[in-house]
């Protein structure tokens, strides 16, 4: 599957960029570097309540990264099926923060415009962010409306009877509760958004295009031009 993404020694440009971005994300997670200790035991997959529905298992997801194929991870349904239950993270014998790594992959995919119609996590995220930016809180019925607007109102059909029953029981708050300091919250968000840029590893020089080795390692020193020209 990954043949287009890499040759024996080199990653293509797109895959190279994805790998850099992924490693930068991993650096931002406390204990993120432990991904290099993965022993491919499959405890994550065995612990995951939704791995049965995934195309790439959580174990395979880490194998794909190691093999230099982040592209296929971002195209998988796996990252959208993670419900963030942390069963894998708790049981991983190598202490890998699997759930946080999947969050990082979701961020990478959303930032690159991956919006699968069948798994509209993007619609959840966008609607949610809109609610918080507007009111400072998440008004559930408005959030759901925003979700359906982005993911398709066909999805609303299945939940309409249930929503009606909740409404009759007084469990749907139609009035959006709004915080006083919405302007302050927006300032915080704008400033934080400007600081999302990460310190990225320099993987230049074609060193270690695959494998775990580069995680947490110092960037390779550029080879002196003279030495590079010495034969052998």
């Amino acid at each position: 599957m990954a043949t287009a993404a890499r040759t024996a020694t080199r990653l293509d440009t797109a895959e190279h960029e994805l790998r850099r971005a992924f490693l930068a994300e991993v650096e931002g997670i406390p204990g993120g570097r432990r991904i290099s200790r993965c022993l491919q035991c499959g405890t994550c997959t065995g612990s995951c309540p939704v791995s049965y529905a995934m195309d790439l298992s959580p174990r395979e997801l880490i194998a794909r990264f190691r093999a230099g194929d982040v592209r296929s991870i971002l195209a998988s349904r796996t990252i959208w099926l993670c419900a963030s239950c942390y069963a894998c993270t708790v049981r991983c014998p190598a202490g890998i923060k699997v759930t946080d790594i999947v969050y990082a992959l979701k961020r990478m995919a959303l930032a690159r415009g991956v919006r699968p119609a069948r798994y509209p996590t993007f619609a959840v995220a966008e609607s949610f962010v809109h609610q918080v930016e507007t009111h400072g809180r998440n008004n559930e019925p408005r959030f759901m409306l925003g979700f359906f607007r982005r993911a398709g109102f066909r999805r609303a059909l299945g939940v309409a009877p249930m929503a009606l029953r909740l409404l009759l029981k007084g469990r749907i708050g139609l009035k959006a509760s709004r915080i006083r300091a919405v302007a302050d919250l927006r300032k915080i968000m704008r400033r934080a958004a400007r600081m999302e840029v990460r310190v990225e590893h320099d993987l230049a020089g074609g060193t270690a295009p695959v494998g775990y080795g580069v995680v947490g390692a110092r960037p390779p020193r550029p080879m002196p031009a003279a030495a590079a020209r010495v034969p052998r």
Binding site: G28, L110, V129, L185, I188, A192, E196
Partner: peptide, 12 residues
């Protein structure tokens, strides 16, 4: 939020 942006999620 954590699926969108880490620093923003933490700041909020």
């Amino acid at each position: 939020y954590m699926s969108v942006a880490e620093t923003m999620a933490l700041a909020v």
